[in-house]
Design a protein around this nucleic acid. Structure first.
Lengths: 172, 172
DNA sequence: GGAAAACATTTTAGGCTTAAAACAATTTGG
DNA sequence: CCAAATTGTTTTAAGCCTAAAATGTTTTCC
């Protein structure tokens, strides 16, 4: 919604809206900044996980999901939560089962479904990594005041809702 | 900086700070929300680029960088700007040169350096895609008021600075 | 001038990621 | 009941991505 002063060239002599390519440069800049922040932090976390624990970020993320679900999750659940494709989860899980971090079994009641859980080893290692991970995040956001954090949370919630609505418009 | 009421358990009987694992749950939640927003929007843009133009997001991003640099860029420049590894750029450029979107030549003055530019075709296609891309972004952020956008820009700038400082602390 | 350091890029090996197709099991609706 | 639709997962093909090592080039500085 541009300020009135920005609209002068978009109104014809009869004060009627004219079809003009609208200017969305601000939103574009916002998106690029959002992306930069995420890429920056993600890269930093990725590097620290590798250096300190020799683990990849996707593996850590998957274990984080499972740590919150003591009764296990299906691959579909994981895929939705992590917002990645099904095939991606299949490979990720396979590697984590091989390394002894995950337990996978076919559901008794529905033979299509695979339920995965953290093993004892997986849970222990994840907890160790997560504790340190939390301090990295705190440090990365250290210059934000509690008020900044609250305000960002609020605005990002609004952003998420807006984007979800837009996505739903395209794919109803 | 927790509120005073949150600190009660962190002070011992002599009102001295005690070594307690600090609570950074808020920052962690903020990071997850930031990541969710980015992943959501990025996935949406990726899908639309593929459907409408049969182009990948990394290719689009690379062309976007070059569109802003009519005199071309070196691979290092691109790598820094896109915040991806050098080897990644090598492959990306190779595919875009093959498809006729990029021109690549060795610098006259420094034979280590490769300078890449958009070809006429590359520029034309990018401009066509970028125009539509901008409307997608506007739509994805449509529910944010201009004030929201300004405030988010400000807070993300602060976030970026904080994260860069934190990264620099680790890797001086 | 020449060895050593720094720089730009490519190569390598391995893992991540996606979209789409294929497969298997369950549910639905005549 | 049973064919059709749906659901959960895996496979496939291609591309993306990283870290680290290797290669070639230029600069630095004795």
């Amino acid at each position: 919604m541009p300020a009135v002063s920005d609209c002068i060239n978009m109104l014809d002599s009869e004060t009627k809206a004219v079809e003009t390519p609208e200017d969305h440069a601000e939103e574009l800049r916002l998106w690029l900044r959002l992306l930069t922040c995420t890429t920056l932090i993600e890269g930093e976390v990725r590097g620290r996980l590798r250096q300190r624990f020799d683990v990849t970020l996707p593996r850590f993320d998957l274990m984080a999901q499972l740590d919150k679900a003591p009764d296990g999750m299906t691959l579909s659940d994981v895929s939705k939560r992590m917002m990645v494709s099904n095939g991606n989860v299949t490979g990720l899980v396979e590697r984590l089962v091989d390394s002894g971090h995950l337990d996978r079994r076919t559901s008794e009641t529905d033979r299509r479904v695979q339920v995965i859980r953290l093993t004892k080893l997986g849970r222990a290692e994840f907890r160790r990594m997560a504790a340190e991970h939390e301090t990295w995040i705190a440090d990365l956001f250290a210059d934000l005041t509690p008020k900044d954090v609250r305000e960002l949370m609020r605005l990002l919630a609004k952003t998420k809702a807006s984007a979800q609505k837009s996505a739903a418009r395209r794919r109803p």
